[in-house]
């Protein structure tokens, strides 16, 4: 949620070469690079594990330099029908839930920032307070509900719950963003006789692309990485997402470290790729001037 500076509704990053903090030095760069490498050492273990056989791992451990490297674990992933189902399910949940939560957040954010009907203050607090509601408090009532309507053990509960739970963050970010869109733009369009849906679609939303992009990236990452809802609302393999799938591999065979590690890496690829794209977009969004607060 937080990568966005929610206090004043604009993206907080600027290019680091305009950094204001007193002059740096080349030595600091070397030091930070060394720290960054140290910081990433833990992740190295998963890479090493994914290229080792399970017998090799149980004999030498993963950090020993002896032993042979193999891509067997990845081949097994590729050929596994379970893994294909997990990955497909993750996409089938994440993409619609991301689109719905960002769309809903844009609608409510626009109303609360620009149309401001009576009760806007209360409605803002109501919608945004979800940020502080621990998801655990929702589980039993929702579990009951989805059982009753026979959606338990399908993908629907995850799509629905993520769409709803994401509204708080999306409303907050979009409301703050829209607050910085000049009222004159909206009023001018109104004078021209444009309807509210048209103003939103043709005037306001095109200006909001950087915010929408950054928000969609965040939502995609959160929803893709979620573990709690698939754990509660899905039981069979056909309805499980990849994050629960990683643990299932551990259950199927007693020691499946190699394939668990390989699946961890495969499962992280979508968010890592999105994240890399997101970083560039973030910086680009800041320099277009469309988001200046």
């Amino acid at each position: 949620m937080s990568v966005l500076d929610t206090k004043n509704g604009r993206m907080p990053f600027r290019r680091s070469d305009t950094s204001a903090v007193s002059k740096g030095s080349s030595r600091v760069s070397w030091l930070m690079l060394a720290l960054a490498l140290l910081f990433l050492i833990p992740a190295l273990g998963v890479f090493l594990t994914s290229f080792r056989t399970d017998t090799d791992i149980s004999k030498h451990g993963i950090w020993a330099l002896s032993g042979n490297l193999t891509v067997d674990n990845y081949m097994a992933m590729w050929n596994s029908s379970s893994v294909r189902i997990y990955m497909r399910n993750s996409f089938l949940v994440t993409i619609p839930a991301t689109l719905i939560s960002v769309t809903f957040g844009s609608l409510s954010g626009y109303v609360l920032a620009k149309l401001r009907p009576r009760g806007s203050g209360f409605l803002s607090i109501f919608l945004i307070s979800g940020l502080f509601i621990p998801p655990q408090i929702l589980l039993i009532p929702l579990f009951q509900l989805f059982n009753k309507v026979h959606l338990y053990d399908t993908l629907w509960p995850m799509i629905i719950v993520h769409s709803g739970y994401g509204i708080s963050l999306c409303t907050l970010v979009m409301k703050n963003f829209f607050a910085h869109v000049p009222d004159e733009l909206v009023e001018a369009a109104l004078v021209d006789g444009a309807s509210e849906p048209r103003i939103l679609r043709q005037v306001v939303l095109p200006l909001s692309r950087p915010a929408l992009g950054a928000l969609a990236t965040l939502q995609f990452t959160f929803i893709w990485n979620d573990f709690l809802y698939p754990l509660i609302f899905a039981r069979s393999e056909t309805a499980q997402t990849v994050m629960v799938g990683i643990l299932n591999l551990g259950g199927q065979y007693s020691t499946a470290y190699g394939s668990q590690a390989a699946l961890s890496i495969v499962a992280s690829l979508p968010t890592v790729v999105v994240f890399i794209i997101f970083q560039k977009q973030f910086i680009a969004g800041l320099t277009t001037g469309a988001v200046k607060g």
Partner: peptide
Amino acid sequence: SRTTWGSRLIKSMFFMPLALSLVV
């Protein structure tokens, strides 16, 4: 913020854990 070179690369390295799920 006090680096003179490589800040984008170093920044990306430090950001990386954020893309991962807590399961991973």
